[in-house]
Nucleic acid binder design. Structure first.
Lengths: 215, 215
DNA sequence: CCAGTAATTATGCAAGCGTATAATTTCTCC
DNA sequence: GGAGAAATTATACGCTTGCATAATTACTGG
């Protein structure tokens, strides 16, 4: 009948790698990088530990792959809503703030991952490069949005002031992202994004108080 | 002559505990909680590993003691400059922002410690309590300063708005603290505090642009 | 100055770690 | 349908870990 006596099923390299990476991210978020053991990851992915070595030449390599996977997912989630060239610069800035401060970007698991990876990022050159590239991309993108919105509003700013505005707005967004992830129940849905829009508005002098129109 | 044949020196319980805690914080900042091994800590404190068990009944207990030590040091450094009742509320708010965004509060090691402890904090009840108490104290204190400064300026705010302002200002400070600690060379001395003052000013509508007068 | 006691070191143990390699099992192709 | 190849499991090794306990060493009080 339905009792399948097979002891395992073969999967494509892609599917297996992804499953292992997802299991790794779960355990890293829960127990940190060192707490994410090869045996634990294998169990979470429903395979035996030997298989990990078949797809990744070391635990280090798996960790790096997982980190890159996570960073890509985060940037995709953040940038997609604001990447469309349609709409005014102000609308795109608003969409960016909103996306950065609502799920799935705001999420306890993301905070935990960010914290867990921090040590490794500071020590491993490859991870450091990934981190700085992502971070720089984020801030430059934000600075570009602010510049365009200010231009649009008829009050363009110099390079020095633009840099300061981007640093400040980036900081509010980061800080709110952190608070929302660390204390998920302390804020009503949408409250964080609302405070974010108001703060960015106050700092830049722009008016992005209203919710972004959904496309 | 000066060749002291003694194999070790006895120290007071206080001094030994503090030395062990400081060694623990160093290693936790460098390698995370799991990477701070009993043997590593003992070596860093120039003792043998057995001594740790003599002063702390387990590694867990040492970690908790180290966390509490660190949190106390952080709050002391942050609150001391603004705790003096002298000066206007605006001056105290300014001093608070400055203290939060200059060394030794802004420090790569603090960020590393914060990240390393995060996992443990979310799992251990005692550490969680310490964390929430510290965090709540920080935000309530900031909210009080903002309330007093607004009152002083003749434009008091309601409870709901006050809460939002405190959340937003707390977020900017946290975000800048994070950026300054993660990228210590990206900012000129005092630049972070300057951006912090400007941002808090923009968000609250207060005017704390000038540096705080030193007492 | 010398015994007693507490601090400190020295040694050992069981469990868990990452990694390596051999033994199986599943699938594909002719 | 059976042989070859690749995926997966099974087993083992050396090392590190936290913890326990015994053996030393340094200090103190009479």
């Amino acid at each position: 009948m339905s009792d399948d006596r097979r002891k395992f099923k073969r999967e494509s390299a892609e599917a297996r790698k992804e499953a292992l990476i997802l299991a790794t991210l779960e355990l890293v978020a829960e127990n940190g990088v060192r707490g994410a053991t090869v045996r634990g990851i294998a169990e979470r992915a429903d395979v035996t530990q030997g298989l990990i070595r078949h797809y990744f030449s070391s635990k280090e390599e798996l960790i790096i792959a997982a980190y890159e996977h996570h960073m890509t997912a985060m940037t995709d989630q953040t940038f997609a809503p604001a990447a469309g060239a349609d709409g005014t610069a102000l609308e795109r800035l608003t969409a960016f703030v909103n996306a950065s401060l609502t799920p799935p970007v705001v999420d306890p698991r993301s905070i935990a991952l960010w914290a867990s990876f921090l040590n490794k990022v500071q020590q491993d050159e490859q991870m450091k490069a990934t981190h700085e590239r992502t971070y720089g991309y984020f801030r430059d993108f934000l600075e570009g949005l602010i510049a365009a919105a200010l231009q649009e509003a008829g009050c363009p700013a110099g390079a020095s002031r633009l840099r300061q505005l981007a640093i400040a707005c980036n900081a509010v967004i980061d800080g709110l992202w952190l608070e929302g992830g660390a204390l998920p129940d302390a804020f009503a849905p949408g409250e964080l994004a609302g405070i974010g829009r108001q703060s960015v508005a106050a700092i830049t002098g722009l008016n992005l108080e209203q919710e972004a129109a959904t496309a």
